[in-house]
Nucleic acid binder design. Structure first.
Length: 582
DNA sequence: CACCCGTTTA
C-alpha cells in the first residue's frame, strides 16, 4: 500500500494545502499506520510558502513529539525553520526536546538554537548549549562558533564574545560583523572602527553597521561620508542613514533623503512615520502612511502608535478599526493591542479596553506579555480598579521603569499612596533609574498625604539622576506647599524657576491661596494665570472664592459676573485689573 | 551566523 501512497502523497503535498487540510491528511496517515510518511508532511509544512504562525508551530511540535520513530533530520530542520521564522521560543524548546531524547543535533540546529537564545535574551539557555557544543565536538564549526559569539554579544558580554572570536579556528565575514555590531551596541565605537578597518573582506553589512554606529552617536557627517564611500548599497544602507537623520531630529534632512531614495520599503516608511511622530507632525506622518500602497501590520502599528503617542486616541482607534476591516487579512499583534489599550486609557474607554483583555485577546489567541500588562495596569488604574492593576503588576516577569511608573501613578491616584512610596523605594533598590514621569508619580502620591519634607527630598534628588524638573514638577511642589499653607515659600519656588512657569504652576499657587484665603498672593497667581491661559474661567472662580472668603463681596460678585458673561477673562480692560496692578 | 522599523508610564 505504501508503495502506491507515497507518490500520490508527494503529488498531493505539492499542492497548496491549508493547515486544516494538512491536519486531516496527517490523521489519515496515522490511521493507516504510515508513520514513516510524517517526515514528508513536515518537510512540506516547513517549505510551504504559507506564513509561519503559532498554529503551524504547535502542530509541528505535536507531530515530532508523538511520532513513533524519532526523526533526527526532521527535528533539526524544524528547529532551523522555527528560528528562521522568528519562533525563537519554539526553536529553543524543540532543541531541548531533541537533546532530551538523546539525539544528536546538527550544526545548523545548534546554531539556530543559539541564535534563538540570543534573540530571547536567554543567556543561561545559550550557555547550556555552549557546554554541549564542547561535548559534541562542534567546536571548529564556523556557524556554531559565530552563533556562540552572537549569543555573548546579545547578552552584552563582549569580553566572552571576544574570547570566542580570538579562539576561532576560522572566521567569516559574519563573525567580524557580529563583533562590530556588538561593540557599537555597547558604545565602543572606536573598537568597532578597529575591527572594521582590520577585517579582511568587508561586505555591505559591515558598512551598514558602521554607518549605524555613527548615526547612533549623531555623527551624520561621518555617516554620510561612509555612505558615499561604500562600494555597494542595499535598502538597509539607505534606511540606516534615514533613521540617523530621524534620531538626530533632522526631520527635513530625513525627508529630503527619503525623497531621494531609489526604493522605499516598509521600514523606510515606518522610520519616516516615527520621525514625524516624534516632532508631532501627524499630518505628514499620515501622508507617508497613505502613500504606501502595500500596507502591512507593522506599518499600521507605526501609524496607530503615532496617533496614540500624540494624544489622538480617537484616531488611533479609528485606524485600528480600519486595520481589522480590511480584507487583506492583517492581524493585530501584541504591539498593536498594547497601543490600542493605551488609546483606550487616554479616552477613558474602559469598556473597550477591558473587552480586549477579557475577550478579544483570547479570540485571536494573543498571549499576555509585560508590555500588555503595563498598558492594562494603566487602564485599570485610571478606572479605579487598583486591585486589578496591582495583580497585573505582580504578574510581571520583569518590572521596568515604565511599569513601575505606571503602578506608582496608579497607586498615587487611588488612595494607595503608601504602596506608591514602597514601590518607589523598591525600584531604587533594584537600581532602576527613575525618569521625569516617575517623579511626577511619586510627587503626586506624596502630595496627597501632605508629606512636605519627603517631597522636597524627592524633588531635590532629581538632579542626581540628571533630571531637570519640568514645570509640571514645580506645579506638584507648589501644590504640596500650598496645601499646608506655605504659600510664600511656594511663591519663592516659582520665582526661582529656571524656565517659564506655565499656567498650571500659578494655578497650583492660586488653589493653595484659595484654601488659605490669601488675597495678596492669590491675585498675583491669578494675574499670571489669566495671561497664560485663554480659558481662565476656572481661575477666575478661584480668585472670586478668595475675595468671598475674606469678605470682599463686591470684588467677588464683579469677578463672578465677568466669568459668567465671557467664560474667559482678558487681561487688558478688566475693571479689577487696575486693582491688581497697584 | 550579521545590519535598518513598530510595543508600555504624566
Amino acid at each position: 500500500m505504501a508503495g502506491e501512497v507515497v507518490p500520490k502523497l508527494s503529488t498531493l503535498l505539492k499542492c497548496f494545502l491549508t493547515s486544516k487540510q494538512l491536519k486531516q491528511l496527517h490523521g489519515l496517515i496515522l490511521v493507516h499506520g504510515l508513520n514513516h510518511l510524517e517526515g514528508l508532511v513536515i518537510r512540506h509544512l516547513i517549505t510551504s510558502p504559507s506564513d509561519y504562525n503559532q498554529g503551524i508551530a504547535h502542530y509541528l511540535r505535536l507531530i515530532l513529539r508523538h511520532s513513533k520513530q524519532p526523526d533526527v533530520a526532521s527535528s533539526n530542520s524544524v528547529i532551523r525553520y522555527f528560528c528562521d521564522h522568528g519562533g525563537f521560543q519554539e526553536a529553543f524548546a524543540q532543541y531541548v526536546e531533541l537533546q532530551r531524547s538523546g539525539l544528536l543535533p546538527s550544526t545548523f540546529a545548534v546554531a539556530s538554537a543559539l541564535k534563538a537564545c540570543a534573540r530571547l535574551g536567554n543567556g543561561n539557555g545559550g550557555i547550556m548549549i555552549h557546554g554541549q557544543v564542547h561535548s559534541h565536538g562542534f567546536c571548529g564549526d564556523v556557524y556554531v562558533e559565530t552563533a556562540l559569539l552572537g549569543l555573548y554579544k546579545s547578552v552584552n558580554d563582549m569580553e566572552t564574545a571576544k574570547k570566542v572570536f580570538d579562539e576561532m579556528s576560522e572566521r567569516n565575514v559574519v563573525s567580524w560583523n557580529s563583533m562590530i555590531d556588538g561593540y557599537i551596541r555597547s558604545g565602543n565605537l572606536s573598537i568597532a572602527e578597529e575591527f572594521f578597518s582590520g577585517m579582511p573582506n568587508k561586505d555591505v553589512v559591515s558598512w551598514n553597521s558602521m554607518i549605524s554606529g555613527y548615526s547612533r552617536t549623531r555623527d551624520m557627517e561621518k555617516a554620510l561620508r561612509l555612505f558615499q564611500e561604500m562600494p555597494e548599497r542595499n535598502p538597509t544602507s539607505w534606511n540606516v542613514m534615514l533613521s540617523g537623520y530621524v534620531e538626530s531630529d533632522k526631520i527635513d534632512l530625513a525627508r529630503n533623503f527619503y525623497n531621494s531614495m531609489p526604493q522605499r520599503n516598509t521600514i523606510s516608511c515606518i522610520t519616516m512615520i516615527g520621525g514625524y511622530s516624534k516632532c508631532g507632525d501627524i499630518k505628514s506622518a499620515r501622508e507617508v502612511f497613505n502613500c504606501m500602497s502595500q500596507k502591512d501590520q507593522l506599518l499600521y502599528n507605526a501609524m496607530i502608535t503615532c496617533y496614540s503617542k500624540n494624544s489622538r486616541p480617537k484616531e488611533a482607534l479609528q485606524l485600528f478599526d480600519k486595520m481589522l476591516q480590511l480584507k487583506s487579512n492583517i492581524q493585530p499583534d501584541k504591539m498593536t493591542l498594547a497601543t490600542v489599550i493605551s488609546a483606550c486609557s487616554q479616552l477613558g474607554d474602559f469598556t473597550f479596553g477591558s473587552w480586549i483583555h477579557d475577550i478579544y485577546m483570547k479570540q485571536i489567541s494573543i498571549t499576555m506579555d509585560d508590555h500588555l500588562r503595563t498598558s492594562l495596569i494603566d487602564l485599570y488604574s485610571k478606572h479605579g480598579s487598583i486591585d486589578k492593576a496591582l495583580k497585573l503588576f505582580h504578574e510581571l516577569h520583569k518590572k521596568d521603569i515604565i511599569s513601575y511608573t505606571a503602578m506608582i501613578l496608579g497607586c498615587g491616584n487611588n488612595g494607595k499612596e503608601h504602596i506608591a512610596i514602597q514601590l518607589f523605594d523598591e525600584m531604587m533598590e533594584s537600581k532602576i533609574r527613575p525618569n521625569l514621569v516617575t517623579f511626577s508619580g511619586i510627587l503626586t502620591a506624596l502630595s496627597h498625604i501632605g508629606k512636605v519634607e519627603e517631597s522636597y527630598k524627592c524633588f531635590n534628588s532629581m538632579k542626581r539622576y540628571g533630571l531637570v524638573p519640568t514645570p509640571d514638577h514645580y506645579s506638584l511642589m507648589v501644590e504640596i506647599l500650598g496645601r499646608v499653607g506655605r504659600l510664600e515659600e511656594a511663591h519663592n519656588l516659582i520665582k526661582g524657576m529656571q524656565m517659564e512657569p506655565h499656567s498650571g504652576v500659578w494655578g497650583a499657587l492660586l488653589l493653595g491661596c484659595s484654601m488659605h484665603d490669601n488675597v495678596e498672593l492669590g491675585e498675583i497667581a491669578a494675574k499670571h494665570c489669566f495671561e497664560l491661559e485663554s480659558d481662565s474661567s476656572g481661575y477666575g472662580s478661584l480668585l472670586a472664592n478668595i475675595y468671598a472668603g475674606v469678605g470682599r463681596w463686591e470684588d467677588a460678585k464683579r469677578l463672578r459676573k465677568r466669568v459668567h458673561e465671557k467664560g474667559s477673562i482678558k487681561v487688558p480692560g478688566s475693571s479689577w485689573m487696575n486693582h491688581l496692578q497697584e
